[in-house]
């Protein structure tokens, strides 16, 4: 099994940390994982993306052109990465702020209204966890307990009190996907 993912949005959405969570969770499940961020000005509020590879085998290239899954969180990323999904792959996006919905017919497309849900829950910070939860329900190869373990590993101890909230967000996300 090899799963290659791109998560793309803008800085501050938690794109990098979502990717980090995925990578950590995979390692908790004794898989190989590689996390390759687009670094630089992106970290300071511009567009931002991260490539995550998860596999049973040693990971070859950390840099990829085509992906099994694209998680798209803003319109510029949609424009850039819709075409990068492998035929038969998955495109998941948050419709908030998306002006042109994806049109490809050879891939599976899911919408997850994470921004809306996070606002409704009055917890805008857990937006990315809702998206991650949605992803886990589409690609259920990572166990939730491993994800929570990965969360514990990736969060500094002072933020461990937020773990229950994040876990809740993951569960909310898992029930939130719709196929447009």
């Amino acid at each position: 099994m090899t799963e290659e993912i791109i998560i793309a949005g803008f800085g501050g959405q938690g794109v990098l940390s979502m990717g980090k969570m995925l990578a950590y969770s995979a390692i908790m499940q004794h898989l190989e994982a590689c996390w390759m961020p687009a670094y630089g000005p992106e970290m300071r509020g511009g567009t931002c993306n991260v490539m995550v590879s998860i596999s049973h085998d040693k990971i070859s290239s950390p840099v990829l052109r085509c992906f099994d899954t694209a998680i798209i969180l803003n319109q510029p990323s949609m424009d850039k990465f819709e075409s990068a999904v492998k035929p038969g792959g998955v495109l998941m996006y948050d419709p908030n702020g998306i002006t042109r919905t994806p049109t490809r017919k050879d891939i599976r497309i899911f919408a997850v209204s994470a921004t809306e849900e996070a606002t409704r829950m009055n917890e805008p910070r857990i937006f990315n966890m809702i998206v991650l939860g949605a992803y886990l329900s589409v690609k259920p190869f990572l166990g939730l307990d491993h994800v929570v373990e990965g969360l514990r590993k990736s969060l500094p101890p002072r933020n461990h009190k937020l773990i229950p909230l994040n876990e809740k967000a993951l569960r909310v996300g898992m029930g939130l996907i719709t196929q447009p």
Partner: peptide, 10 residues
């Protein structure tokens, strides 16, 4: 290089 420096792996 920037790839190896910035990426995360086990």
């Amino acid at each position: 290089d920037g790839v190896i420096g910035q990426m995360m792996e086990k």
